[in-house]
Design a protein around this nucleic acid. Sequence first.
DNA 1: AAAAGCCCCTGGATGC
DNA 2: TGCATCCAGGGGCTTT
Length: 274
Amino acid sequence: MPELPEVEVTRRSLLGHLPGSRILAVRMGKPLRWPLGMAPEGLVGRQVQDVRRRGKYLLLDLDQGVLVVHLGMSGRLRMDDRADMPPWGPHDHFELDTTQGVLRLNDPRRFGAVVYAESAQAPVVQKLLGHLGMEPLADGCTPESLGNALGQRRAAIKQVLLSGDVVVGVGNIYASEALFRARIHPEQHADRLTRPQVRRLWEAIRDVLQHAIEAGGSTLRDFASPEGRNGHFQLEAMVYGREGEPCRVCGTPIRMVRQGQRSTYFCALCQRRR
DNA sequence: AAAAGCCCCTGGATGC
DNA sequence: TGCATCCAGGGGCTTT
């Protein structure tokens, strides 16, 4: 579910509740993708100081140590008063009871994870975050820096975007959508993009993500922020999930191809191969 | 170093 | 209605 916008919306929401809270109890369900890396009881008494994001990872900074949280494909975080929290269910796998409310991770597929590390510099964290590419919305992401990084990659642009080691946060939906906006064929080799193409892609990625964040993360999928549901799609996808339907720009039927076990959607006319 | 496959797990949609 | 099959928003690990 969560691409960068959903994770960022989650982060902003948690920022309003979590910092300053003290952990009163920890509850865990079935194993997630990776073990927590410490005894859960050891977290009791620690204080959450900040909530940061790197790519699709959330970092809960504690007064001692850090919790690295990833939502995987199906993870959702919810924060609420104990009284308003639904009963613990079979897909609830992590919960922090704090002085400022309850934070709970629900994740049916369990591709998500919560990992503890002594610090953000710890080897575990480096292993997870060390290889990540630039933040698309940060100042350091410019048409030049993006072009330089893409110039090192010969694989299809769609797969390079998805890999996360050039730019982070662009998942399967937004990759297709950004390439459509930039009018770039998803199978074009990354190192063959022209300067104008790179510039259009840079802009498209930032626009698409920025809009999605502003819309509360519910642009292209149903999404519930930690405070609760905020509803339905607010924008329609231009190409994602629309195989066979007419392109919203030119009417050509949208095509679907498989790239590295993932679906890619595009308009063969608007995104002509060069 | 980079790229291609595989795999983790569960639920929902679709087809017979 | 029941059962099999396919697909899903991620990403680390292993192998080429």
